[in-house]
Design a protein around this nucleic acid. Sequence first.
DNA 1: GGGTATCCTGACTGATCAGTCAGTCAGCCT
DNA 2: AGGCTGACTGACTGATCAGTCAGGATACCC
Lengths: 203, 203
Amino acid sequence: MTEPATNRKHLILDAACQAIARTGAAAVRVADVAREAGVSTALVHYYFPARADVILAAFGHADDMADAVAEEQMATLATGRERVERLILVWAGDDPAIRTNWAVWNEMWQYAAHNDAARAMVADSHGRWLEQVAGLIAEGTAEGSIPATVNVDAAARRLAACVDDWGRETLIGMRTPAGMRAALAAATAHELGPVRRARGRAA
Amino acid sequence: MTEPATNRKHLILDAACQAIARTGAAAVRVADVAREAGVSTALVHYYFPARADVILAAFGHADDMADAVAEEQMATLATGRERVERLILVWAGDDPAIRTNWAVWNEMWQYAAHNDAARAMVADSHGRWLEQVAGLIAEGTAEGSIPATVNVDAAARRLAACVDDWGRETLIGMRTPAGMRAALAAATAHELGPVRRARGRAA
DNA sequence: GGGTATCCTGACTGATCAGTCAGTCAGCCT
DNA sequence: AGGCTGACTGACTGATCAGTCAGGATACCC
């Protein structure tokens, strides 16, 4: 969504993500995507036979971006706990690109309620996200930065639910990103117990 | 959504809810609503000048239903804790009417991302729902069925997030209603502490 | 009976939009 | 040069859909 598109296909997908974030997937017209990309509607159909193909490809595109961002954000962090905390906060950032990506992700969920292909994408993507959170929590308990008493899977699911739900509230304007970050930090602390040094003194 | 509509306006709103639940608000055509209700499209326009008016009225209609259902479900329960537990589980029920209502509520959220009127409805409705949960938890702590150490507002928000998010997963078919009920029961127990008799022995 | 208000309809219209098509143009191969 | 291909466009078409309109039916009142 940020780096300049090298080819037209990529450019069209960036444009589609912008359009989806702005008006919602259901309201996006092929002409909107074409205009946003500075291209003819015929070219959009040249790369993507049907409208639905553009939308689905844009969802996949946004999903790839999300993976890359998450990867990058956690690269420098040492403990599992730090990585969980960061991962939970990534999508509450103020960066417009983050917001766009989040909006597209949200649209993908909605689209999935009435479209089988999108449903498969969401199931896969959401599953990976849950596994990632649970994996990091497990790392934390193994290394001692998170208490061993934490139920890894249940905590991961509850935290993921908070991210999803509060993210949606933020998208609609019922919260500020800063408010969301504060609430998420509190929820993380509540789930993972008080912060302590890795391999620190027992509870 | 269940009781037979006495007048045509009511009938049209029921039909609109069904159509919204089935295909999503964005894809609902005035003709779909008319067909579902067994009336002409002109009659739909007679009661609701524009398509958007039907959709918004249907959202309000579903919201009223939801309040009534919640009220009814909790009527016979004694303690705050019991009422919280029931309220959390209401929307994970197997009844098709519950599912329809939930689907419409979900569509309302999505619609709100791009429509000011819907946004106001969601903000109001969601606020009342949060207050209701928090109020019941507070009752529980006051009467002793819930430990006084529970942070009322934070717990209410986290539980509400689980209901919203897992409900959406269920709607898409990523969970069964029974699985959702089990997860919600576990989350409630996690938030409110172990079940104990009202006014029971201290922690 | 005549007047009129409410509820309701079928038939229509104008706008919008996905998708097609014939054809242009730049680059590349021989 | 000439021929071919892949990228790209403007103009068009057929379908869909929201919203209108003129009028029909029923009921109630005078």
